[in-house]
């Protein structure tokens, strides 16, 4: 159902704390906001049931919202990401995956598949998040810059974490 380990739990706490205390205060050129907590949904095991994806996305988003004073914005975007992530994983996962499932990572999906998966998921999330935040299409160009720059920054952090995890696994 939900293969949560102690390690994952602490990682989630650390990532959410980092988001609330550090990343929320980063606004590069007033546009790019890193939101690496998306990673908490991306790294769920592929055998996780879909309702669990949705619920976990909602919980992560709600926690971030509560501490960021943006109630509803992250929760709505993360809930949708929870709905769509399993489908993305199906699309971008390798054809020779086993029946036991896997934890999405460059190791299990190759870098190409993982980058596509993470990029699609992050773009969907940031698009929804900034749509929720602006709540109108008054300034579409500004909205697109927000989405692109924030997605780029978030993906950089996610890939950095993945790279670190791979190096630590080798050691």
């Amino acid at each position: 159902m939900f293969p949560v380990s102690i390690q994952y739990f602490f990682f989630a706490v650390v990532l959410m704390l980092s988001q609330v205390l550090v990343f929320n205060h980063i606004h590069i050129l007033g546009y790019a906001i890193p939101m690496p907590f998306v990673y908490l949904v991306l790294m769920l095991h592929s055998s996780t049931s879909r309702w669990m994806y949705v619920l976990w996305g909602f919980i992560v988003g709600l926690v971030i919202d509560i501490f960021s004073n943006t109630l509803g914005e992250n929760a709505a975007a993360m809930t949708f990401l929870g709905l769509i992530a399993p489908r993305l994983l199906d699309v971008f996962s390798p054809a020779d995956r086993g029946d036991d499932g896997f934890i999405p990572s460059p190791h299990t999906m190759q870098w190409g598949g993982y980058v596509r998966y993470a990029t699609a998921a992050t773009l969907i999330f940031t698009t929804l998040f900034f749509l929720m935040e602006s709540f109108s299409l008054f300034d579409v160009v500004r909205l697109c810059i927000h989405i692109a720059s924030s997605s780029f920054l978030t993906l950089l952090i996610i890939f950095a974490i993945e790279h670190l995890r791979q190096n630590m696994a080798r050691v």
């Binding site: 949705v54 619920l55 909602f58 988003g61 709600l62 919202d65 109630l71 509803g72 914005e73 929760a75 709505a76 809930t79 949708f80 929720m132």
Partner: peptide, 10 residues
């Protein structure tokens, strides 16, 4: 959950 989120949002 989506409806709940949007309700909280507005």
């Amino acid at each position: 959950l989506e409806i709940l989120s949007i309700l909280m949002l507005v």
